[in-house]
Amino acid sequence: MFSALVIEKGEAGQTVTLKSLQENELPDGDVTIDVEYSTLNFKDGLAITGKSPVVRKFPMVPGIDLAGVVTDSAHAEWSTGYRVVLNGWGVGETHWGGLAQRARLNGDWLVPLPGEFTARQAMAIGTAGYTASLCVDALVNFGVRPEQGEILVTGATGGVGSIAIALLTKAGFTVAAATGKTSEAEYLQQLGASTVIDRAELSAAGKPMQKERWAGVVDTAGSHTLAYACAQTRYGGAVAACGLAQGMDFPA
């Protein structure tokens, strides 16, 4: 027996329950894992509350990432005792995810947990940290350099925003942090932000072409904020868009 958070949908709507399940109730997969840690992501919040159609089939165990230990494997790359990490691959959407004590997954989806990290540390960084890393890599690979000017990070106090600020600062960039939580300015400055902007400056409809300001942008908001950021990005700059916190539209 193991415990899992289970989302079900009936005539009365969606319900979320902490349940005790048998291992034979796990979905198909060639690797079984004892889950040590998972992360509560924004996407998981949408799935659990039903505010967005994240879950594609029911019943569903949410949790788009996990870290744990292999307890059984029919996959060539993984043996009992291996420590692994997973995120993505539709887990928590179409395949049971990490908000459970046990998971059964496709071994091709797994990566080894680096020896430098505990499972707890890996999930403290989590999908948000991985996403932030991909965004910073995208800007650097596009050719954005520190001497070209400021980088805007929206949703700055969130998981992606916070880690993006830290990574960009470490790489030598000057960072402007946009947030609706201006009371957290000191926290953002400790991460490395040189400027803190009220997100209200960016979240309304703006002119399609504005004064060039940003050498690059990491955007987690979408909608008007993303359009505003694009309108202020310098010629030859780049925008890494990875979130839809404000909306799924792009009114530009």
Score class of each variant (00 low, 15 high):
E184F: 13
G29C: 04
G149K: 03
M209Y: 13
I64Q: 12
A47Q: 01
Q148G: 15
F142Q: 15
A252Y: 10
T131M: 12
T174L: 11
G29W: 01
T127I: 03
Y130H: 12
L152N: 07
G159N: 07
I165P: 02
I197F: 03
T131H: 05
T32N: 09
A12Y: 13
A193K: 06
P59A: 01
L168G: 03
S162R: 12
A47R: 01
A12E: 15
D108N: 06
V61T: 09
V136S: 02
G13A: 06
V31S: 00
A205N: 12
V144C: 14
S223N: 15
G98C: 07
D219Q: 01
W96S: 02
L46R: 10
L167I: 09
P114R: 00
I64C: 06
G159P: 07
D108W: 01
T154Y: 10
V217K: 07
L168M: 08
D28R: 09
T118V: 02
E150W: 12
V31H: 00
V140Q: 13
T233G: 09
G180Y: 08
Y235C: 07
A166W: 11
D198L: 01
A227V: 15
A128Y: 05
C230N: 10
A156Y: 05
T131K: 08
A238Q: 06
A67T: 06
G107W: 00
